[in-house]
Design a protein around this nucleic acid. Structure first.
Length: 727
RNA sequence: GGGCGCAUAGCUCAGCCGGUUAGAGCGUUGCAUUCACAUUGCAAAGGUCUCUGGUUCGAAUCCAGAUGCGCCCACCA
């Protein structure tokens, strides 16, 4: 053995050894294994490249799975990738724009072809990169959220909900991105503070007076169908039930009382535009108000906004309206005002709330189910502090808008009866029974006419399919053996920003379709920040590429460095120093091995893993320390406290074993009465340490193990070599 | 507007179900290399544990408040 460990020389060779062993596939693990452990990889998007978050997540799961595999569990870690709806579509659109092509130029079919080309090209890059980190999931079970079998699961889920009456179609004001031309969810909206003007506008009353409303968006005035005040507001009490006129249009609208109006904001009176504001829409339900759509899907004022603004962009209309109000003397004032403006998270365009026909999933019962599951610890959210925000979100949840006007994704299994049926003379009566749409797995035929059914253009929110991940990947809705063996899973870890987006939705999907929560523990891991506490972001150039670090220091050093700093839910200010510490540690392990091997030379083939008997105080001390390290590692990994465990293993190996015992052993070996026993203990502690360290530092430990086997050690590869027994 | 978290050595962080001289890594300083490893060993310097008040025989640790920083959630026109 060389005096230095060379990761470059070892890593690729070792990974091949693992792949060749087939042990990543739980079906191919040796021995009778009754205990199971399973985890699903959080599927990376087909866009983008590996970042520190992926590294942290997958290293963590890899550690847990490796220990379980060694402990004799039938351990499955299933990998995969996500089609990532809007994110992926935007990435490809952006790419096409470089060649001056818009998706509309290509048409849907051609565009989707381009999407698949992209997926073929980039989809597996991240997964391949994970290998460089030593991650060893069962590649033979890799899934993609648009696989035909997965699509079947998605349709099945949709139809299940629909038949339960939980999916409905309705007009709602939703967040609309005029650039992506699709509705997006609340969770895909980003708020940024922005200076604006708060316009105080006089709405004339019949008696010649005014009611003044405050708004940042005067152009939406043309869609007003009421003015609302708080019922307790003394200033306006006598006006409730009377009428005001929309300026410019002179259209009469009622003055209503609604408890949702904040008396302290602006003038205490608010214009109500039900088609273009979420809370106004809700008010319109409570008060049965008409809804006038004045902004179209591209963010242009419609004809319904009146000749005054029709055809203009909303921003242009705003200026023009303000001017006109000024002229008419109806603009009381326009004060500077900072407000939180909504932007599309994926493309940065300002959101235009819009009344639009969408599909929704009723959340009331699913939320109830999830709240119970979390409260009863069917799934433990860890750290525990995330329970409260999760429950809070569920308590106030609204129905989930599951439709998107995108081209990339699972199309709804909804079929529209189009074109409108042309009645045949002999069947005129039946035609009335033709359905507007049918929800069905396959294209239906109309019983009453010859019209075709055409599949809905809408696709499902990407999270609708991700929500099924823990069981759709195992073959659901078919009753597969994988499903019965590996569902529910034990562990999942994810970034906190997708707690609501993904984790919670997996929980209720699991409850609904499988009757059990999909994982026993959901671990919300820390965010890795830059050294000065900034967010790592590719666009800001603050990101660190984990692969570059692997190149520079070796995979084990990177795994060490990340895990060593991952001590809890606290954000990590990432320091490369920890990786250097890891590299040094690898070298320490390497050289300790060299020493122990040299001490034992010819005798390696004689060793078994029976407990040696301590003869000196130092012997006793190191054997106890090993026992403690073993116990701490086991219980620590079972609690997913990876950083803590690694700290204690580091201290044990470096200080207890190398600094103290190895030094002491040099003296003991000089005594012929102690020499042999001492060497035995050295070997015993070393080999058991390698086992304990293997989940964290798989390459170097396996490489060393390989050397020991070459030197005569009777053992299989470390990856399945049995975990040290606690005596 | 609600909620959560953090503040400990020059830097990054442990410790925090109260109890002997507050720990680690990196950095700094000194000494030590034929004898596993200089990617090393031994030793040292370095902290009024953010501030104020409270509980207690005793507080970095528990409680309240202040200050600073960060994050999440929310339909504030």
């Amino acid at each position: 053995m060389n005096s230095q460990y060379d990761p470059k020389q070892a890593e690729e060779k070792i990974y091949r050894l693992w792949e060749k062993s087939g042990f990543a596939d739980p079906d191919k693990l040796p021995g009778k294994r009754t205990k199971k452990f399973s985890a699903m990889m959080a599927p990376p998007n087909i866009t983008g490249s590996l970042h520190m978050g992926h590294a942290l997540e997958n290293i963590s799961v890899d550690i847990a799975v490796r220990m379980k595999r060694m402990q004799g569990f039938k351990a499955l870690w299933l990998p995969g990738i996500d089609h990532a709806g809007i994110a992926a579509q935007n990435a490809v659109e952006k790419n096409l724009r470089k060649q001056n092509i818009r998706r509309q130029d290509l048409g849907r079919e051609k565009f989707v072809e381009k999407m698949y080309e992209w997926k073929e090209k980039y989809g597996h890059i991240i997964l391949d990169q994970l290998k460089k980190l030593g991650a060893l999931p069962d590649w033979s079970r890799t899934r993609f959220t648009l696989d035909p079998e997965y699509a079947e699961a998605v349709r099945h889920a949709f139809i299940h909900y629909y038949e339960k009456g939980w999916i409905y179609r309705g007009e709602r004001v939703i967040n609309w991105c005029p650039r992506c031309e699709t509705g997006i969810s609340d969770l895909e909206v980003e708020y940024k503070e922005e200076p604006a003007k708060l316009y105080h506008i006089k709405y004339p009353l019949a008696d010649g007076g005014f009611i003044i409303v405050a708004t940042t968006r005067p152009e939406t005035m043309f869609g007003d169908t009421a003015v609302a005040v708080n019922p307790k507001d003394g200033r306006y009490k006598k006006l409730i039930g009377k009428f005001a006129a929309v300026p410019i249009q002179n259209r009469r609208i009622p003055i209503i009382a609604d408890r949702g109006v904040d008396m302290k904001f602006g003038t205490g009176a608010v214009k109500v535009t039900p088609a273009h504001d979420v809370s106004d829409f809700e008010m319109s339900i409570r008060h049965n108000l008409p809804r006038i759509k004045i902004i179209n899907e591209k963010g242009i004022m419609t004809d319904e906004s009146g000749v005054f603004c029709a055809g203009l962009k909303t921003g242009e209309c705003r200026g023009k309206t303000a001017e006109e109000l000024q002229k008419l003397g109806l603009l009381e004032k326009a004060e500077n005002y900072i407000h939180n403006a909504a932007f599309c998270e994926r493309c940065g365009t300002k959101i235009e709330p819009r009344l639009s026909l969408q599909w929704f999933l009723k959340m009331a019962e699913l939320a109830e189910l999830t709240i119970k599951a979390i409260k009863n610890k069917k799934t433990a959210l860890y750290p525990k502090k995330w329970e409260k925000p999760a429950l809070e979100w569920l308590k106030n949840i609204r129905d989930w808008n599951i439709s998107r006007q995108l081209w990339w994704g699972h199309r709804l299994p909804v079929w529209f009866h189009e074109p409108k049926c042309e009645p045949k003379k002999d069947r005129e009566k039946d035609v009335a029974k033709c359905k507007e749409f049918v929800v069905s797995e396959k294209k239906p035929k109309c019983e009453y006419c010859d019209a075709e059914f055409i599949r809905s253009d809408d696709v499902l929110d990407t999270w609708f399919s991700s929500a099924l991940w823990p069981f759709a990947t195992l073959g659901w809705p078919k009753k597969t053996t994988d499903l019965s063996e590996y569902y529910p899973t034990d562990y999942i870890t994810s970034a906190r920003e997708i707690l609501n987006l993904w984790i919670i939705r997996m929980i209720f999907s699991g409850m609904e379709f499988m009757g059990k929560t999909p994982f026993k523990t959901a671990h919300i891991h820390a965010t890795i920040l830059t050294k000065d506490g900034k967010r790592m972001s590719k666009s800001l150039g603050t990101g660190i590429d984990p692969l570059l670090l692997v190149e520079r220091y070796g995979a084990d050093a990177v795994r060490f460095g990340i895990t060593y700093q991952n001590l809890g839910g606290q954000d990590i200010r990432f320091s490369e120093d920890a990786i250097i510490t890891g590299k040094k540690f690898c070298n320490k392990i390497w050289n300790a091995t060299r020493f122990v091997m040299m001490a034992n030379r010819e005798k390696i083939s004689d060793f078994n893993d029976k407990n040696p008997k301590p003869k000196t105080a130092a012997d006793k001390k190191i054997l106890i320390a090993l026992k403690m390290a073993n116990k701490k590692t086991e219980t620590g990994i079972d609690k997913y406290e990876f950083g803590k465990v690694l700290h204690s293993l580091y201290d044990f190996f470096w200080h207890d074993f190398c600094d103290q015992y190895i030094e002491e052993s040099k003296k003991q070996s000089a005594d012929p009465k102690l020499a042999e026993n001492t060497n035995r203990i050295l070997f015993y502690v070393l080999t058991n340490s390698l086992k304990l360290l293997h989940p964290f530092l798989p390459f170097i430990t396996e490489e060393i193990w390989d050397n020991l086997r070459s030197a005569g050690l009777k053992a299989g590869p470390l990856i399945i070599e049995s975990w040290p027994r606690q005596v």
